[in-house]
């Protein structure tokens, strides 16, 4: 895909040169972990039952890690399409459309640059979660495979949602459209999932819905490898199913994005 690398580099330059977006990108994960993880210390109420309620986690922060990592992927992904609309409004998109490149790379450069940003945020998040008092506790060790699962889950979530929003951005000229849709779906996506709370704490109908939410699949997979380290064969099976589900969805969405962006992107 000609043009992919230069366009990605350009997108990242814009990001780190804009002090606000760069600082927000760094501070956001800190807020997530510090505010959500310790301000709402749900484990206080659970007391000795903490581990039972939170699927084996020693505390809520450790439980929450999988959810927060997933949400970082989700949010960064959802907003990656918005820059395409920016470029359209500024006229810059015209320059890319005139260039002899595969037009899908206009869209995929955005997805790729959001991947880089996600990695940076994930690294910061882990750093902070480890150093903060009463932070993340990895009790049962972590293997290379666990890290691979963790990273792929976050990436696949970001692929799914950046694709979805890129397809919207391919044609629309209004930022409001994207903001509107993001506002509409981010709460249901987060709360109708196991990102923050285990199924046992949810109304039955909600936990039934959450089962089919890819945000749950990613949160649970990351959580299991972080909490349990080496998985039992039944746990490994669950993680495998979730990961395959995420993989199927990402491949489908990325292929759709390729087709739509290649053919339909316009001024």
């Amino acid at each position: 895909m000609g043009g992919l690398i230069p366009l990605t580099v350009r997108d990242l330059k814009r990001w780190y040169r804009n002090p606000v977006s760069a600082v927000v990108g760094v501070i956001q994960p800190i807020f997530w972990i510090v505010l959500f993880g310790s301000a709402f210390d749900i484990a206080k109420f659970a007391g000795a039952n903490t581990s039972a309620i939170f699927e084996g986690a020693p505390d809520y922060i450790t439980y929450l890690m999988g959810g927060i990592l997933t949400i970082i992927g989700l949010f960064t992904g959802m907003f990656s399409g918005i820059n395409i609309i920016w470029d359209r409004r500024l006229g810059i998109l015209q320059r890319f459309l005139m260039a002899p490149i595969n037009r899908a790379s206009i869209v995929f450069s955005r997805i790729l640059s959001s991947v880089v940003r996600i990695f940076i945020q994930v690294a910061i998040l882990f750093g902070i979660a480890f150093v903060m008092p009463n932070g993340l506790k990895i009790v049962n060790g972590i293997s290379i495979l666990d890290v691979v699962i963790l990273i792929s889950a976050v990436l696949m979530i970001s692929f799914i949602f950046s694709s979805l929003f890129s397809i919207i951005a391919v044609r629309t000229t209004k930022m409001e459209t994207v903001f509107g849709i993001v506002n509409l779906i981010n709460l249901p996506l987060m709360f109708a999932s196991y990102a923050m709370f285990p199924p046992d704490l949810m109304a039955t109908w909600l936990s039934n819905v959450a089962k089919y939410n890819p945000v749950s699949w990613s949160s649970q997979s990351i959580r299991m490898v972080l909490i349990h380290g080496s998985l039992t064969s039944s746990e490994a099976h669950t993680v495998l199913i979730y990961m395959l589900g995420l993989l199927a969805l990402s491949v489908f969405m990325l292929v759709m994005t390729y087709i739509v962006s290649n053919k339909e992107i316009r001024e």
Binding site: K13, R14, R17, G91, Q94
Partner: peptide, 8 residues
């Protein structure tokens, strides 16, 4: 129209 990127 202008098509250059002001941030570059």
């Amino acid at each position: 129209d202008l098509t250059t990127d002001g941030d570059l």
